[in-house]
Design a protein around this nucleic acid. Structure first.
Length: 198
DNA sequence: CGCCAGATTGACT
DNA sequence: GTCAATCTGGCGG
């Protein structure tokens, strides 16, 4: 079954709305002749200067990217991980959506190879884990995700019922906004787990 | 230029 | 439970 890519204008909205609507969409990575794919099960929205947890606050290249063209990848390196975001915001605004976890569909063997583990449950259930499984790194920074022939793209996927969408405060941020900006699919085994006693 | 902090993960006491 | 690895940008903590 063939899925078409999500058009650029999809990302030209409030990051929170884009985040919710990205749940169930499919991320596809073409690696040579092989395909690695999975559907999005957990996301977080980030804003501009008004958001104390946003990278856009610091300025620099990442802030410029968050301010720039929507629908492109923003790769954020931290703690030896590459975190993957999609730039999303309204006109003349700033924002991005962090993809925190995906549910594997195709290319399981490659994912296990790239992750260095055969533990299926741990393959893609975290922001740094799934990017490693998909072999996504800095080289994709700025790549448009709406091109049909792209090496990395986001396409239509599963339809997620409203009552299966849960929300919560963002994970790992020390200063959050007063609104829940983390969204995930209820009961999906690949949603990241908060570490106990932290 | 060095140090700090942050949207994390995995190894080890 | 604790700690370190390592990318980025700001600041002189």
């Amino acid at each position: 079954m063939k899925h078409s890519t999500i058009p650029k204008k999809f990302y030209m909205r409030n990051p929170k709305e884009v985040a919710v609507d990205l749940l169930g969409k499919i991320v596809t990575r073409r690696y040579g002749e092989k395909i690695i794919s999975g559907y999005i099960v957990e996301v977080e929205a980030y804003y501009g200067r008004e958001d104390p947890a946003s990278r856009a606050r610091r300025g620099g290249n990442l802030a410029e990217t968050m301010r720039g063209e929507v629908g492109v990848a923003l790769i954020y390196g931290i703690h030896r991980q590459w975190l993957f975001n999609v730039v999303a915001h309204e006109k003349d605004s700033v924002g991005a959506v962090l993809i925190r976890a995906v549910h594997p569909l195709k290319g399981l063997e490659l994912m296990m190879k790239f992750r260095g583990t055969s533990n299926l449950k741990e393959l893609t259930n975290g922001p740094g884990k799934w990017t490693k499984a998909f072999k996504i790194d800095k080289k994709f920074h700025g790549t448009p995700l709406y091109l049909e022939g792209g090496e990395l793209k986001i396409t239509e996927g599963l339809r997620i019922e409203k009552d299966r969408i849960q929300y919560a405060f963002r994970i790992g941020v020390s200063r959050d906004l007063p609104t829940p900006l983390r969204f995930y699919i209820k009961d999906d085994p690949y949603v990241s787990r908060r570490r106990r006693n932290v």
